[in-house]
Amino acid sequence: MIRALRAIGIGLAALVVLGCCAVLIGGPRLMPQVAALLGLAPSYSGSTGTVGGVTIGGPFKLTDARTGAAVTEASYHGRWMLVYFGYTFCPDICPTDLQKMIAALPAAGAGADRITPIFITVDPGRDSAAPLARYVGLFSPKLVGLTGSQAQIDAVVSAYRVYVEKVPPASPGAPYLVNHSAFMYLMNPSGKLAAIFPPDVKTADLAHRLADDTSTSPAS
C-alpha cells in the first residue's frame, strides 16, 4: 500500500511545472509516460516499445551537431541510447538533468561504454549545429547533440511523445522559453524502449538502473 501511494505521488508530481525553465510534465500526450511512473509495465510490439498501447520511439532523421553528419535511429543500432529532449536556452532544468545523466554513466558499470547519451533539441530555430555542439561539449565529449529542421524535430518529438510548447517572451526583446517534458528514455540496441526515467530520478538510482537494464534487458 505504501509503495502504491508513493507511486501515485510520483505520478501526480509529474503533472506539475518544474522550475523557472517552465518544464511541463503533463498533457494528454504524456499519459503513457505518467502510466510508466505509476508502475505499469511497458509492453513491446513491433520494432519499438509501447507503454499503455502507445508507441514510444521510432525512426528519425536528424543532424549530429558536432560532426554535421546526417543520422537516423539506425546509426545507433547495436548501442544503447539514453535520450533527453531540451534546449540550450533552458535556464536550469536541462543543464541539471544533463549533468545528472553524464554523472550516472561512469557509475553504471561495464554497460556504460555501450550507452550513447543523446540530447535532442526541441528548439531548432535557435539550436543550430554550431551552438548546439558548443553546448553539449560543456557537459561531455561523449554527449551527442542532435538538431534538424523544424519538421524533423516535430517528427522525433511526436515519435517520443514529448510535450513541447513555445512560450511567448515576457517582455519585448526577452528570450522565449519552451515548455517541455523532461523524461530520459533508455532505448535498447535494437531501438526498442527499455525504460523511462522521471525528472526527479537521483543520479545514483539512475546509474543503478542503467547498470541493471543494460545487463539484463533484451538487446533485440
Score class of each variant (00 low, 15 high):
D113G: 15
L82F: 07
A133M: 12
A108P: 06
V164E: 00
I196Q: 02
I196M: 11
T116S: 10
A74Q: 15
Y84D: 03
Y135W: 08
G125F: 11
A170S: 14
A170G: 14
K192T: 01
L206W: 02
S181L: 10
N188C: 10
L186A: 05
H180G: 07
A112N: 07
I115W: 07
T147G: 02
G125I: 11
H180I: 09
P172E: 11
A74Y: 14
K142P: 01
A170E: 14
D200P: 08
G109W: 02
P117V: 03
R79D: 11
L210V: 09
L210M: 12
D97I: 11
G86P: 02
Y87D: 00
A155T: 06
S75E: 10
A108K: 09
V201P: 00
D123I: 06
W80V: 01
S128W: 09
V157T: 10
A103L: 05
L105V: 03
I115A: 13
A129M: 10
D92W: 10
D154H: 09
V162S: 00
S158N: 14
S158W: 10
A112K: 08
T121N: 10
Y76S: 07
C90G: 11
A130R: 05
P141A: 08
A74R: 14
P168V: 00
K100D: 11
A155E: 07
V122Q: 02
